[in-house]
Amino acid sequence: MNEVMDPKSVGPRIRMMRPNLTPLEAKVVDSVFGRRDFSVETALKDVAETAGVSEAMVVKIAKKLGFSGYRDFRQNVADYVRVSDAEMHDELSPDDSGAEIVSKVFRASIQALEETLAIADVAAFERAADFIADARRRDLYGVGGSAQIARDVAHKFLRIGIHASVYDDAHMMAMSAALLGTRDVAIGFSHSGATLVTLEALQIARRRGARTIAITNYSHSPLAEAADVVLCSTARGSPLLGENAAARIAQLNILDAIFVLVAQRDVKSAEAALVRTKEAVRDKRRG
């Protein structure tokens, strides 16, 4: 790499590489990020001793993460730590007051949004919007919380006349994917990028010639490898919230941006559909 990146993007880019790391390598990275005193002055020997590994291992990990060496890694991580500390939210604690909990949860989401924006690949957003706008069928796959994000997306698209189907059952996903073709798009939602049923559905869709999009937290995950376009969210972990809570907010914003990009491709049609769908539900409201 041998370059100074946008400081806000350093942590997310390293987190996205975690699926490529061994447990020991991940432990070394965690020990670095667990240090509040990490700076451009932190010696390689100090990092190695703290993590209980050799200096050569630390250099190897730095290169595996895409840096030219330890100094490149140290400079970028130190910049990220400095920026993050200025905005840092303390970890949630069972002893927190109501006001502290509300503040920390909001700050975690704000940080996830800012870091997701820092790593956003605008070309990938545009390509995904093209796939969705031009598709004959749009099938969305996800389970658990990811299925809820998919339903939110389908709801938004329906408002502007873009039909999308959501599948959260393994058999239904597989059958849906098997019926897709070159004019269709399949979108897989998985925070980990390793949810087996979602991965299998996207792989089937790809074999059938459909365009594939992955919405995930890890750019090097199995789901990402099965996709033509990868849109990544990012969020720090937390003992109480985990990564998923804040990452979900980031993923919803990613899809909001895609929604607007798709609508932009045929504004008149989107506006006309929006008027009709608003009128259709107006009588369903009280008062």
Rank of each mutant, 00 (worst) to 15 (best):
R107H: 02
A164V: 11
V185S: 01
M175S: 08
I110R: 13
A164N: 06
M173S: 12
D134F: 02
A128C: 13
A178Q: 13
D121V: 12
E115I: 01
F106T: 12
A135V: 11
R107P: 00
F131D: 04
R107T: 14
A128M: 09
G193C: 09
D134M: 09
A174T: 14
D121F: 04
H163A: 09
L113N: 07
S165Q: 10
D121G: 01
I187E: 01
D139S: 08
A120V: 10
E126Q: 15
F106D: 08
A135E: 05
G188M: 04
D152I: 03
E114A: 14
D121Q: 11
K156A: 13
G161Q: 09
A123M: 02
Q148I: 11
A133E: 10
A135H: 07
D152Q: 10
A177Q: 03
R107Q: 15
S103L: 10
Q111Y: 04
V153P: 00
D139C: 06
A186V: 06
V166W: 01
F106R: 15
L140T: 05
L179C: 09
A170K: 08
K156M: 14
A133G: 07
A177Y: 05
Y167G: 01
Y141V: 07
A164S: 15
G188P: 05
A135M: 06
A112L: 01
I119W: 05
K104R: 15
I132S: 04
K104T: 07
A178V: 00
L140Q: 05
A174F: 10
D130R: 12
K104Y: 02
A128N: 06
H155A: 13
R151L: 11
V185A: 04
F189E: 01
D168M: 06
D168G: 13
D184H: 07
L140D: 04
Y167Q: 11
L113R: 10
R151A: 11
I187L: 15
V105T: 13
G181H: 08
L117Y: 07
L140A: 07
G193S: 10
R138P: 00
K104S: 07
D139K: 08
F131S: 03
I162A: 05
F106S: 11
D152W: 00
F125W: 11
R183A: 14
A112W: 00
H191Q: 15
Y167H: 14
H155I: 05
I149D: 01
A108M: 14
L179P: 00
S190I: 09
F131Q: 02
D121K: 12
S165F: 01
D168F: 09
M175N: 13
A150N: 09
R159I: 02
A108Q: 09
I187D: 01
I162N: 03
F131C: 02
H163N: 05
F131W: 07
A164P: 04
V185C: 08
H155P: 00
A118N: 12
G188C: 08
